[in-house]
């Protein structure tokens, strides 16, 4: 398994849990957070250094500014060691709010997908040189089929899925692995205050996700039950789908 990982969104619930899981395995980490959470980012750096026994690098990125990732990728000194990257940035703003304010919907799309383009492509360019590496991004079952309760979020995830699918196709003949993670509802700041019953524990989710990454899977549903569930949801005829309160 790859030992050097960059994690974007490592101040978030899933991002920090994944970072901890990788740190427990002794990986070298670079973690990125937004300007809003500098202090938290530094607390996470300390935590991850203790867990991994390695120095941890950090960086502040503001995904509303194009070009925010460039400096970081330019500075990378890996001496040819393989690199893995994980995109765990995202916002889930209420659908109703976004319907009323489409400008806000496009800002959400910017954070959830547009910003990822730069991150993923810079990573791909970096890996292409050495012909190995691992690209991971957190998509969502919400991107598998549009539904009335969250399609504005789902659409940005669908774009991300397609992007990853393309990257995988592009690198199919190389040692570059591409993984699309689709976690079910997880108890993180993103979902705070929403229906709790089905929410998974972020620590367990991180364990599932990292194990899927380790196995080099193309798509990782976490927990795996979401795979058959979404398979059915995707194939439901409109006649039935339209009647469901999803």
């Amino acid at each position: 398994m790859i030992e050097n990982w960059i994690i974007a969104g490592a101040t978030g619930g899933l991002g920090s849990a994944i970072a901890r899981e990788l740190a427990d395995k002794g990986c070298n980490l670079t973690i990125l957070g937004s300007p809003l959470s500098k202090k938290l980012l530094m607390e996470n750096v300390r935590d991850l250094e203790i867990r991994s026994g390695n120095p941890v690098k950090s960086g502040i990125v503001d995904v509303s500014i194009p070009g925010t990732f460039k400096a970081m990728f330019d500075k990378l000194e890996l001496d040819g060691r393989p690199l893995g990257v994980i995109w765990s940035i995202g916002v889930l703003w209420p659908q109703g709010e976004l319907e009323r304010d489409p400008i806000r919907a496009s800002i959400a799309h910017q954070i959830n997908y547009t910003a990822a383009i730069e991150f993923l492509e810079l990573a791909a360019a970096h890996m292409k040189a050495s012909d190995c590496g691992h690209i991971v991004a957190l998509g969502s079952p919400a991107g598998d089929r549009g539904r009335r309760s969250n399609y504005l979020y789902g659409a940005s995830k669908a774009a991300l899925h397609t992007h990853l699918e393309g990257l995988r196709h592009r690198f199919a003949k190389s040692a570059i692995v591409v993984t699309c993670v689709k976690p079910g509802p997880t108890r993180t700041p993103m979902t705070a205050g929403m229906t709790q019953r089905l929410q998974a524990d972020p620590k367990l989710q991180a364990r599932r996700i990292v194990s899927g990454i380790q196995r080099g899977r193309q798509v990782v549903y976490a927990p795996s039950i979401w795979w058959p569930v979404m398979k059915i949801v995707r194939h439901l005829p409109n006649l039935i789908y339209d009647k469901l309160d999803l």
Binding site: G13, E43, N44, R46, D47, I50, R51, P202
Partner: peptide, 9 residues
């Protein structure tokens, strides 16, 4: 349970 950072070791 989410306050789970190591601070010093």
């Amino acid at each position: 349970a989410g306050l789970e950072r190591a601070v010093e070791f």
